[in-house]
Design a binder for these strands. Structure first.
Lengths: 256, 256
DNA sequence: CGACGATTTGACTACAGTCAATGCTTGTGG
DNA sequence: CCACAAGCATTGACTGTAGTCAAATCGTCG
């Protein structure tokens, strides 16, 4: 379980500048977090849902199941991110969410949203823009699933995870990697066997080092060429134009 | 080219109640529309983009291209919908958009968003919720692309288009269908040949009638079973909680 | 040690892709 | 009124990527 209030502020400030009151608000939300053990289901598709959720710490997976038994993972969630926002529009969860590591999760009630729009417009805007950035990621996944060959899908996934970790300030000589190969397969729309074969090839070619809980990318350029990976869709530009704009709190912070 | 101001108001009111001032604002946006001929590119991925766009009338496609030449369609846009919202978070278009029919398209400047948040919070909330609903659709597509067999993908696409047309008030004994088979293939991640074969089979089995510009679904239950189609992800519930809430203007309007 | 989950590998299969040719409309110009 | 071109749809033969099924191995934790 990694993450802190700072991770949350930092994530929001990728999208909008925050004022002291906004930060205080988010800190209060953060403080409401409850702890969830790894591999627990925290949201089930089709069930009523009256809150969206902030991941204060830990990793989680959003996914959909098919009657035939298939699972498609739709998003990997890192600390500071929000899931279940569709409850605002639907009042129902449209996907399931499972923790990957031990997590700290804070609810934000659906009924509070309209007020939030007035009392903390920058936070509300941050939620919108974060949702927009989420869509960009999902879009990239749809492109992978529809049009990239298997090796490119896997390579793309690995590069995305590493890049997002870097942006989120999760650093070290290797990237944490709590996914199983079944998870990788469910992210990429492949079967376990085939995902395994591809990972094995990448390892044998010296492109990556993959050990339980840990990923290191050895030849990033080669892997990026295979994947057709570009990081633009992961790198938003903060939006200006808010009145009473507070001073820059994250002065164009870069992490690589 | 179908659609009117009403289509725009109606679409927003699926998500939030609007006041007279909100409706006036949207009408002004609507009035700024410019006409675009069919099959024209109106947004190009990677290019700077300082406005999001409202489709006042007509159909459009959002898609991504691969260097290898592949195209993945990500969304079919109907009248009243918004595209290019990611420019708020990125200042750059992340996908390309092409008109399918003759369209009327209105820009909403990126720099106006922060003010909109204050002056028309319900419209701002509507944009957010519409984006959330968009995500739900994209998510369903990702599930199709990753885990559904080819016939199910095609069936799902046809049912979704028909259902969305019904919700948007586009009625008649057949649904308009301006997509070519190449478009269908690019939506479903298939090749033209294979998409053609599957459509041929469906036609021969009496499941659908597909003619240029026109789709009729004959045996909806059978097709829905093949597709694993459920319409929940297309049917939002308006969000309450706004102060000075106006009376209901679309009293739980259903269309089917 | 035994159990369970995760990973690895092999043999075989099939769904969907590729490539290429043909047909069908529709619109345009001679 | 016909010839022709362009775009879209259809069909066939062949291929290959990825799926299926099954078994073996590894590792960790009781």
């Amino acid at each position: 379980m990694s993450g802190s209030v700072d991770a949350v502020h930092r994530r929001f400030e990728r999208f909008v500048p925050l004022g002291a009151a906004d930060r205080r608000f988010l800190s209060e939300v953060f403080a409401r977090a409850r702890i969830v053990e790894p591999r627990r289901t925290v949201l089930t598709e089709g069930r009523r849902c009256e809150a969206l959720h902030l991941i204060a710490a830990g990793w989680a997976l959003e996914y959909r199941l098919l009657p035939s038994g298939g699972r498609q993972i739709l998003k990997i969630r890192l600390p500071g991110e929000v899931f279940g926002a569709e409850c605002l529009a639907f009042g129902t969860a449209l996907e399931s969410v499972q923790t990957l590591t031990r997590c700290a999760i804070s609810p934000i009630a659906r009924e509070d949203y309209a007020g939030l729009q007035i009392s903390h417009p920058r936070v509300a805007a941050g939620l919108f823009l974060a949702a927009t950035a989420d869509r960009a990621v999902l879009q990239e996944w749809a492109l992978s699933l529809g049009r990239r060959p298997a090796a490119a899908r896997v390579a793309h996934l690995l590069l995305e995870i590493e890049h997002r970790c870097a942006l989120a300030g999760i650093t070290g000589r290797a990237t944490p990697f709590p996914l199983t190969q079944q998870d990788v397969a469910d992210c990429t729309g492949l079967t376990l066997s085939y995902a395994n074969r591809i990972l094995g090839q990448m390892r044998r070619r010296g492109l990556i080092t993959l050990r339980p809980q840990e990923l290191a990318i050895q030849r990033r350029a080669d892997l990026a060429r295979i994947a057709g990976f570009g990081s633009r869709y992961l790198e938003p530009t903060p939006l200006g134009g808010f009145d009473g704009e507070p001073g820059p709190s994250v002065p164009a912070a870069r992490s690589g």
